[in-house]
Amino acid sequence: MYAIECLELTKVYKSLSALQNLTLRVEYGTSFGLLGENGAGKSTLVRLIMGFIFPTSGQLRVLGQEHVALAHAKIGYVHERPIFDPHVSGKRYLIHLSRLTGIRGVDGVKCVDEMLRRVNLQDVANRSIGTYSKGMQQRLALAQALLADPELLILDEPTSGLDPRSQWEIRQIIQGLRQEGKTILICSHYLSEVEALCDAIAIMDKGRVKLSGSVNDLLQSKQVVEIVLAEHLSACDVVSSLAIPEEYIVTMQAHTFEIQARAQSIVLDKIVQGHIPLISLNPLNQSLEDLYVHATDQEASSIPPHSLSNAGGAS
């Protein structure tokens, strides 16, 4: 059921606890985003998933394997700063890697040509990698990760340090993979990128998951409704005349006011009974930035982490 399953996962380096009793599940076919400041534990988690390091305690399964090295052949990994031999052409580099994965001869060349086309490098395939821009090298790294058609794709800061055009090109490729149903784990500092590319997220802070769940559910969890009245009306006057309890009101401005979602039916009844002209009633979403700031706010650290049971959620 899960491509990645972490249960009470802890990693301690000497006296430093990098991960603390972390429980996280990523379902197959989910594009999952990991958010957090430097030192939050994202890189440690990725290293554990890749089998580069081992947990101090807890359980970890990757593609159903507790011995995660057994899953390596089914994982594609793109490092934040991929390293290439600058003297080798992009095509020769991929052909060499295809042979290492067991794809040889005509099949290997066809596979490489397809990957180059997929990342839009076919026109520069025979140029040395040293002549590639950083964005082109990142696309080559993606092609490399996709050679063996992995079940799980791990992208560590895939657009970090790229110019806007290169970021857009990488995101288009990732979006295509997402639409194909590929399981993707994305570590990123770009909130808008994660919001656009991910079905579910986990926000990490100091080795713990502070908030997790599906992106849609989390963004719709503000529980606030905006009420827009006819322009000639004052929201303050209407609220007062209808005796709407102060505890229901979130904000008031000109002919618009916001209320707690739980009070929507009560307030709407009062508006209808009072024959108040109503232009619109709009449930409001919060931004991923709002979620992130609240989840990582040090003053709010005593608040228990939220958890949703939706696809890809953590608990």
Rank of each mutant, 00 (worst) to 15 (best):
I271P: 03
S128Q: 08
S221Y: 13
I279E: 13
P245V: 02
I249V: 09
Y28W: 14
V239L: 13
C236G: 06
V228W: 02
S221F: 11
G90I: 01
Y2H: 10
L284T: 07
H96E: 06
C111A: 14
S212Y: 04
Q286T: 06
S241N: 11
Y248L: 14
Q223A: 08
Q179I: 12
Q179Y: 09
D113P: 04
I173W: 01
H189P: 13
S17Q: 14
A145S: 03
R99K: 04
L191T: 01
V209A: 14
A254L: 08
V12W: 00
R117N: 13
H87G: 10
Q179G: 03
I186L: 07
C6V: 09
G33I: 10
D156T: 04
K11T: 08
S307W: 11
F84Q: 06
Q223I: 06
F32P: 00
Q286E: 10
E289T: 07
K91T: 11
K270L: 15
S287K: 03
D85A: 08
Q20Y: 12
H275C: 07
Q172A: 12
D297Q: 08
E66H: 03
L185Y: 00
T30Y: 02
M50I: 13
T10K: 04
G51Q: 09
E246K: 15
D290C: 02
A73W: 13
V215N: 08
S214A: 13
A196P: 04
T183P: 00
L24K: 01
L146G: 11
L142I: 11
Q253A: 02
L16I: 14
P150R: 04
G33N: 10
P158E: 00
P55V: 05
Q260F: 05
N282D: 07
K222D: 15
S133N: 02
D149F: 06
V12C: 07
A145Y: 03
I259V: 06
A314F: 03
L34F: 08
N285P: 15
K206I: 13
S133Q: 01
L281Q: 12
K11L: 11
V215H: 10
M204H: 04
I244P: 06
P82I: 00
G76S: 03
L291E: 00
A18Q: 05
L121C: 01
S160R: 08
Q20I: 08
E231F: 03
E8N: 15
T251I: 05
Q167K: 07
E80D: 12
I276Y: 04
Q167A: 06
S192K: 12
